[in-house]
Amino acid sequence: MTRYAIIVGAGSGLSASLARAAAADGFKLVLVARDIAKLAPLVAELGARAMACDASEAAAVERLFAVAERDFGVPELVIFNAGYRARGLIAEIDPAEAEAALRNNALAGFLVGQGATRAMLPAAKGSIFFTGATAGIKGFAGSAPFAMGKFALRGLAQSMARELGPKGIHVAHFIIDGGIAGTRGSRSANDDDVLLSPQAIAETYLNVHKQHRSAWTHEIDLRPWNEAF
């Protein structure tokens, strides 16, 4: 069957770099987003398959993996790169925003992780990667919902790694500790490397995927040279 990767939360920025790095490594790609119209240029560039899915809905994620397995077989690599950022003072933020942050960071990560696990267990191989953030290790003022979701995602990755590592499935959590060049809210110029290069991040994901199981990375933090930690 086809050697392929699923990237959930596909779009521009990091996810596009992940897609290009995976394609260069020989993967066919299934790119997943709520709105797949925005993926048309990337799909055309890489010959990828776009699939619409709300990753916070169990039935939608179940359909995603059923169709992907039917058409391509068992995925070798699944990357959860979706997220939802909600900001506001704790006394003022709308509880619906907190719920949305939990659904789109924690619950969606769980559902994608569960779907990938079910697909990979019979073959006892594959990688499931989660894109985390500084907020997964440090909650900032005015950003409680995002921290709640990212802390939960990190806990999910830890639990899955301990459960699935002995079964041949590599689970890793990537803490992106800093702004990414070219993404919303960050300037695109990065000549002085004060922002994370999305291409460099993507190379790290692929390198972790290729690790021998005797030396698997479970968690890695990536930051530019100037970022305090």
Rank of each mutant, 00 (worst) to 15 (best):
M1G: 14
Y4E: 07
V8C: 14
G11W: 01
S12M: 08
S15T: 09
A16N: 07
L18N: 03
A19L: 06
A19V: 09
R20Y: 08
A22T: 09
V32F: 07
A37N: 09
L39Q: 05
A40Y: 07
A40I: 00
A44L: 02
E45D: 13
G47T: 05
G47M: 01
R49W: 14
R49A: 14
R49E: 15
A52L: 06
A52R: 08
C53W: 01
D54F: 03
D54A: 12
D54R: 04
A55T: 13
V61G: 06
E62M: 07
R63I: 08
F65I: 02
F65L: 01
V74E: 05
V74N: 02
I79Y: 05
A82E: 04
G88Y: 03
L89T: 12
E97Q: 13
A98R: 09
E99N: 08
E99Q: 12
A101V: 12
R103L: 11
G113K: 00
A116L: 04
P122F: 03
K125L: 06
F130H: 05
G132T: 06
A133L: 09
T134G: 10
T134Y: 01
G139Q: 02
G142S: 10
M148H: 10
G149A: 02
A152L: 03
R154P: 14
G155N: 03
L156D: 05
L156H: 07
M160H: 12
R162Y: 11
P166H: 06
I169Q: 00
F174N: 03
I175M: 03
I180W: 04
A181W: 08
A189T: 15
D191K: 10
L195K: 05
Q199N: 13
E203F: 07
L206D: 14
N207F: 12
V208R: 04
K210E: 14
Q211I: 03
H218V: 05
E219R: 03
P224R: 01
N226K: 04
E227M: 14
A228W: 07
